[in-house]
Simulated scan of single mutants.
Amino acid sequence: MRLTEISYDTARPVEGYGRDFFRIGGQVLHGACLITPWDAGPWGGLEDVLAPLALAGRIDVLFLGMGKEIAHAPAEFRAALEEVGIGVEVMNSPAACRTYNVLLSEGRRIALAVLPVG
């Protein structure tokens, strides 16, 4: 088997997560986070659709990590993003982090809005 090292260029992948934190590019963030290839910071959770809406035109898909278990995204949240051309893929937070990293390494126009697994 041949192993290939993954390169993220200047983008910052999710390096790890725990009960109430995410480690992105060496930085530890607590609570819900909004992560893009160019920035990472706190996010107000499902009640905060404005932060992801600000990414319109810069991303094609938002991966929405719902915590430890998968759950439905609020219909209003999904509709607001889809109205501005951002697709929403909902999964549990561990799967969302892994998927984000894979597509980030491919240079895709993506972002991650993730709730803690705690």
Rank of each mutant, 00 (worst) to 15 (best):
A95H: 02
G26T: 02
V114E: 13
A56Q: 10
A11Q: 08
R19F: 07
T4R: 09
L115V: 10
G31W: 09
A40E: 14
L53I: 03
T10F: 02
Q27E: 15
R23V: 12
T36W: 09
I35D: 14
L29V: 12
F63P: 10
G57R: 03
M91R: 02
I110K: 08
T10L: 12
Y8T: 07
G16Q: 13
K68F: 09
D39P: 00
V61I: 13
L62T: 05
P37V: 05
G87F: 13
P37L: 11
Y17E: 11
R78V: 11
G18I: 05
R23D: 15
R12L: 13
S93F: 08
E69V: 00
L112N: 08
H72L: 11
G107R: 12
A75C: 05
T10G: 00
R2N: 10
E89D: 15
G16D: 15
G25L: 15
A51C: 03
D60N: 05
A80Q: 07
F77T: 00
E106D: 14
P52F: 01
V14P: 12
F21H: 15
E76H: 09
A80F: 01
R58V: 00
G18D: 15
R23S: 10
G85W: 03
G44Q: 06
M66F: 04
A51E: 11
A54L: 01
E76W: 02
G85Q: 10
E69D: 11
P74H: 12
M91W: 02
R23N: 14
R109D: 15
T4K: 05
T36G: 10
A73L: 06
A95F: 01
